[in-house]
Amino acid sequence: MNTRILHTDEPQAYVQAVAEAVNLLQAGEVVALPTETVYGLAADALNANAVAKIFEVKERPSFDPLIVHLPHKKDLEDVADVPEDILPVVKKLAEKFWPGPLTMILPKKACVPDIVTSGMPTVAVRASMNRVFNKVARTFDRPLAAPSANKFGSISPTSAAAVKAELDGRIPLILDDGASLHGVESTIIKIEASSPKPRIIIMRPGPITQDDLKSYGVVVLLKNLKQENKPEAPGLLESHYAPRTPLRLLESPEDFIPEEGKTYALLSYRGDADDGYADLTDWKGVHVLSPGKGKLVEAAVRLFYALRELDKVGADEIIAEPVPTQGVGLAVMDRLRRASAKR
Rank of each mutant, 00 (worst) to 15 (best):
311 D>A: 11
310 L>S: 08
294 G>W: 00
298 E>T: 06
305 Y>W: 11
314 G>L: 05
309 E>R: 13
296 L>S: 15
303 L>I: 05
312 K>E: 15
305 Y>H: 13
319 I>P: 04
307 L>W: 02
300 A>R: 02
322 P>W: 00
302 R>C: 04
314 G>S: 15
304 F>M: 11
320 A>K: 01
293 K>N: 14
310 L>Y: 05
313 V>K: 10
320 A>D: 06
304 F>P: 03
319 I>S: 08
324 P>M: 05
301 V>T: 15
293 K>C: 06
302 R>W: 08
317 E>G: 04
302 R>M: 15
302 R>L: 10
323 V>I: 10
307 L>M: 14
305 Y>N: 11
309 E>C: 14
321 E>D: 13
312 K>V: 07
307 L>T: 04
320 A>G: 12
308 R>S: 05
322 P>H: 03
321 E>A: 06
296 L>D: 14
323 V>L: 08
316 D>I: 02
306 A>K: 00
295 K>S: 06
309 E>V: 11
303 L>D: 05
316 D>E: 13
320 A>S: 13
300 A>L: 07
302 R>K: 13
310 L>C: 12
295 K>R: 15
321 E>R: 00
305 Y>I: 00
309 E>T: 11
311 D>C: 12
317 E>C: 12
295 K>W: 03
309 E>N: 14
321 E>L: 05
300 A>M: 10
296 L>Q: 13
315 A>F: 09
309 E>Q: 15
309 E>K: 14
321 E>K: 01
322 P>V: 00
312 K>Q: 15
302 R>S: 08
298 E>Q: 12
301 V>S: 13
324 P>A: 09
305 Y>R: 11
301 V>K: 14
316 D>C: 08
320 A>L: 10
298 E>R: 03
307 L>N: 03
319 I>Q: 03
313 V>C: 13
316 D>K: 02
295 K>Y: 09
318 I>A: 01
319 I>M: 12
307 L>C: 09
293 K>D: 13
303 L>G: 05
324 P>W: 02
295 K>M: 07
318 I>H: 01
313 V>F: 09
308 R>H: 07
321 E>G: 03
312 K>G: 12
317 E>A: 05
299 A>S: 12
294 G>E: 01
303 L>Q: 07
297 V>D: 14
296 L>E: 11
293 K>P: 04
298 E>V: 01
310 L>G: 06
323 V>D: 02
295 K>V: 05
317 E>Y: 05
312 K>H: 13
298 E>S: 09
324 P>T: 02
